[in-house]
Structures are given as C-alpha cells and as structure tokens.
C-alpha cells in the first residue's frame, strides 16, 4: 500500500444518510476478479441515467446532471462529505476500491459502518468521524458557489479549511501508523508467527475439537 501523504483537496458534499455499499458500487460490478478499475462505476446508479454493466465505456454513458460528482466543480474531489452510517450494508471491499480509484482519500461523516470503516484503512483511505453538527456546518460551506478545500494533516490529526478554521480529529494509533507507513498488515502479523503457533499449541489442549 502507498503511504498516506498529507494533501489539500476539494470536498464533494453528498447529502444523504445511510449510504450503503450497494449504492457505492452496485452488485453487477462485483463479478470482477480484479481489484482495480472500479472508479468509473462508483455510485453507478446515481451517476448515470442508464443501467451500468461491467466493461461498459463510461465516457459514452448519459450522466445524471443532478448528481453531485457530475458537477464539474467536484470532478477532482478527493474528500467526500456524507451523513450518518456511511458504508453500511454489504462487506464488499469493492466499495473502498471504487472510492480510491475515483480519487477519494478522505471521507467525512458523523458515523461509519464498522466493516467499511476497517476496509478503508486497508486501501489508503482515511475515514474521519466528526460531530453531527460540525458535519452540518461543513455541508453549508461545501455547498457554496466556490467549492470547499480542506488540507488534511494525518500526523497532526488536523483538518484546515480554506477559511483558516481548524478541526482536530481522532484516529486509532495502529491505523494511523499503518496508513502513514503504508505497511503490509500480513507481513507484520507474520512477524508474530511464533506467538500464533504458541497460541495454537495451547488451544489444542484446551479445545481439541476446534482442530479436527
């Protein structure tokens, strides 16, 4: 995984609660056995007026002009702003793959669904949970004529708005470290191979039926 670098990006306000992973990347795209190429189908049912299928040339498809990501101001957005329970539903990691492939690196919401939240960190996306009222304020700022730009400083855990306002945020230390260093989780866990084997040896005595 690429290490997470500080950046300054445009905020796309997607004003809905309970955005589920089916909406983020619809089921027909899950038949792919690859990890890449999901970006053009991100929010497919909201973004296009026709029905999307894998391998379609999305540059030829009719766009839903009402959908926020089709607004030219947000086409290069790297920060997604949403309402509560973002990423609920199916565990599909295709959702963060599609968001990352589109270019999103940070998601701001009052709450996230648990599996989606974890999946983000495996794919270089930083999900940030902020107070509902604060999210409301950000929606106001991001919906003005000029798009809102935010600078993200992960080591300092600080967001800086283009009007100079600053918002501190919290992030789990382990997740923060893995994002910043771009670490391979599996490689790290395998450094604990001896501890895992010791655990197994102990557990085989306590609960032998698990191992038959």
């Amino acid at each position: 995984m690429e290490p997470f670098q500080n950046f300054s990006g445009i905020v796309a306000p997607l004003d809905r609660a309970n955005i589920d992973t089916d909406a983020i990347i619809p089921k027909q795209f899950l038949k792919s056995i690859k990890r890449s190429g999901f970006g053009p189908y991100l929010f497919d049912e909201w973004r296009y007026l026709d029905h999307g299928e894998p391998d379609m040339d999305c540059s030829q498809r009719p766009l839903n002009s009402e959908f926020i990501l089709n607004d030219p101001r947000f086409s290069a957005a790297q920060i997604l702003l949403a309402r509560e329970n973002f990423g609920c539903g199916s565990s599909r990691e295709h959702a963060p793959w599609a968001l990352a492939d589109f270019g999103f690196r940070v998601i701001l919401a009052p709450s996230f669904a648990d599996i989606f939240f974890n999946n983000c960190f495996k794919n270089g996306i930083l999900p940030i949970q902020l107070e509902s009222d604060l999210i409301g304020v950000l929606f106001e700022k991001a919906s003005g004529v000029a798009p809102l730009r935010i600078s993200v400083d992960l080591p300092a855990q600080l967001l800086t708005l283009d009007d100079g306002n600053q918002i501190p945020f919290t992030v789990d230390v382990g997740n923060k470290q893995r994002l910043i260093e771009g670490l391979d989780d599996i490689g790290l866990t395998l450094q604990q191979a001896d501890a895992i084997r010791e655990y197994e040896a102990r557990r085989k005595v306590e609960a032998p039926w698990v191992f038959v």
Binding site: R35, S91, E93, I115, K122, N123, G174, T189, L190, I196
Partner: peptide, 21 residues
C-alpha cells in the same frame, strides 16, 4: 462471528489471525 473485507480474508488465509480492537 463477523464479516470482513477481502484484504482481511487474505489476512486470515495467510495468518489465521486478524488485527482487532
């Protein structure tokens, strides 16, 4: 029993463990 993403499926295949809080 809980659901996981594909990176974690690979993690469990390779290590029989998950990083959890």
């Amino acid at each position: 029993a809980f659901g996981i993403g594909t990176s974690e499926v690979e993690h469990v295949l390779a290590t029989q463990c998950l990083i959890q809080r």
